[in-house]
Simulated assay, not measured.
Amino acid sequence: MKLIVLGLSLSSSWGNGHATTYRALLKAFAERGHQVHFLERNVRWYAGENRDLSDPDWCRLSLYEGLADLQRRHAREIAAADAVLLGSYVPEGVEVAKFLFETARGIVAFYDIDTPVTLGKLSRGDHEYVSPEVIPGFDIYFSFAGGPTLDLLERQYGAPRARALYCAVDPSLYHPLIADRRWNLGYLGTYSPDRQPKVERLLLETARRMPDRRFVVAGPSYPDSIAWPANVDRIDHVPPARHAEFYSASRATLNITRQDMVAAGWSPSVRLFEAAACGVPILSDRWDGIEDLFDPGSEISLVEDADEVEQALKSLDSMQGVRARSRILRHHSAAHRAEELESELLDARPGSRSNVPNRERSAA
């Protein structure tokens, strides 16, 4: 199968989780014998030193300058592809979708790596990268969120078939390492205003209560106004090649979910799977659906406040990380997701569904 992917970024992991998600999924998809060509809008904030993968050996990567450049250079290849996958947060995403509907002869799918955020935007009339106008035109709407969200996408927005395609992890890159346990609790995540109250409540407050323990927060864009306790280290950016090292240097890792994803439920982050693959005990906030992914108490600890974090750190079960990694290897590896992607794309081939009326409506 020839698959073309238009995504936010494959070349740069700076300040986004899309790159690591695409890298794991598409590498595993290529290993199943398929050809992949990734088309990425060339933007300055992912260029230069922020571009940490310019020439992957498992797919082609091409940068384009804008919609006109995309149409001029890649229309013929898009028309000939077996499937085209458009991702969330692609610049001019609505116009790109319309171009794909007019040009592609194969499957056209949407891969929403931000589904709860997307639904929040749509409810406010914000059509930054996808709109109600184009959703019915996609043969498949792949969603980072499962559960009731899938029914909502079909019932309210007219997606012909909404399917969960959770993030995943490459166990060959994310695995336990022998490392000095520098920190008792670590958190890896780009600053987000809606997550920061939980960072304050679960990590910073715990650090103040436990001055003899070491903590770390890694990720870009945190404002200078934050008062970091003396026992909390700050790292501005950890490249994917050093994620396993970062996780392995903590006795436990903290998972914090964006508020839109908590509200939707069934919305695991890629960081959750990465930490689990590294065999590190995980303390996570609570949300509907997490028990479908990991067994609370056995494979993951759920916490709501500093009291519960402090207690968890004092009674940490190192085997919890071992059990969580075993769950990843059984159900949440990139190989599992690539198989799911392949199966859904094959099921949506012409002859197994009628997609022409939807595309006509979306382009009207």
Rank of each mutant, 00 (worst) to 15 (best):
A306C: 07
L185V: 02
R181P: 13
L313D: 14
E40Q: 14
L152K: 15
G125V: 09
A276C: 11
W14T: 05
L10K: 08
L329C: 12
R76M: 01
V5H: 07
N50A: 10
L165G: 03
W266D: 11
D55A: 13
L150D: 11
E342D: 05
L39Y: 04
I256C: 07
P148V: 04
D307K: 09
I290F: 12
L6N: 00
I113Q: 04
E95R: 13
L119T: 05
E342T: 11
T21A: 08
P193C: 14
V303I: 13
V134Q: 07
F99D: 10
S221Q: 13
L70P: 05
H243Q: 05
W45A: 06
L204K: 08
A80T: 00
A312H: 03
G87C: 01
L272Q: 08
A83G: 13
Y111G: 04
A109L: 13
H34K: 01
A30C: 06
S13Q: 01
G17K: 08
A24G: 10
A230V: 09
A334R: 10
T21D: 07
A164Q: 15
R163I: 15
D69V: 00
P357E: 10
D170G: 12
N16C: 05
L345N: 02
L341N: 03
A312C: 00
H37A: 12
E65L: 12
R214M: 09
I290P: 08
S123R: 15
P281W: 15
T253M: 11
H18K: 12
L302D: 00
A164R: 05
G279D: 15
G93R: 09
R72C: 00
K198C: 04
A80E: 15
L3F: 12
R195C: 01
S143E: 01
P176I: 09
A162F: 09
G219V: 12
R105N: 13
S333R: 12
G66D: 15
H18D: 14
R72V: 01
R181D: 02
L329A: 03
A335Y: 12
A230E: 14
I78N: 05
Y191L: 04
L272W: 11
E340Y: 06
V90G: 10
R182F: 07
W45I: 09
V130M: 06
A97D: 05
A363W: 05
H331W: 12
L153R: 11
I135M: 11
V96P: 00
H37G: 03
I135C: 02
P357D: 11
E133G: 06
F294C: 14
R234L: 09
L188Y: 03
W45Q: 15
L316G: 13
L53W: 03
A83I: 05
R41T: 06
F273G: 00
V356Q: 13
I78V: 15
L202D: 03
V280R: 14
A168Q: 15
R105H: 07
E133F: 02
I300S: 07
V322K: 01
I113K: 02
